[in-house]
């Protein structure tokens, strides 16, 4: 049973780290601000859920009840605030006049890309 849990936790952790690397690469490589926030914003929440999930399994396995509780607290808090922060950044940039990049010279009224 423990071995199975370990494997599941390891898999979640590996998946989370892979996603984190992908998002970081996207943030670094993509050409304009809205593309970058697209890469960084959504994955932020997913990475958080995966890593905290892995740690929760570990906490349950070790019997750390208070640690598990705090992990759930962190996860819920990030689940609420991380998309909010991303949305606020995107809308602030849009308000200032930053527009998503598009190949045609007159950029259409693009949809606000928040998360």
């Amino acid at each position: 049973m423990n071995a199975v849990l370990d494997v599941v936790a390891g898999l979640l952790l590996a998946l989370g780290c892979f996603t984190a690397l992908t998002s970081a690469l996207g943030l670094y490589r993509l050409p304009d601000f809205f593309a970058r926030i697209h890469a960084a914003g959504k994955t932020d929440t997913l990475v958080q859920l995966l890593v905290v999930g892995a740690l929760l399994i570990e906490a349950a396995r070790l019997g750390h009840l208070s640690a598990a509780l705090k992990l759930v607290l962190i996860s819920i808090f990030l689940l609420v605030t991380s998309p909010t922060a991303t949305h606020a950044i995107a809308s602030a940039a849009y308000q200032e006049g930053l527009r998503p990049w598009s190949p045609d010279p007159a950029p259409s009224e693009a949809e606000e890309s928040g998360a």
């Binding site: 050409p31 304009d32 601000f33 808090f77 609420v80 605030t81 909010t84 949305h87 606020a88 809308s91 308000q95 200032e96 006049g97 930053l98 527009r99 990049w101 950029p107």
Partner: peptide, 28 residues
């Protein structure tokens, strides 16, 4: 390629209306 298409001119906009941020702040 990021382009800056000018600043929002005219009167300063009301900063108080950011529905998502204010809702979340009330909770947080």
């Amino acid at each position: 390629s990021a382009r800056l298409l000018g600043r929002p001119g005219g009167a300063p906009r009301d900063l108080g209306r950011h529905p998502v941020l204010s809702k979340v702040c009330k909770t947080v």
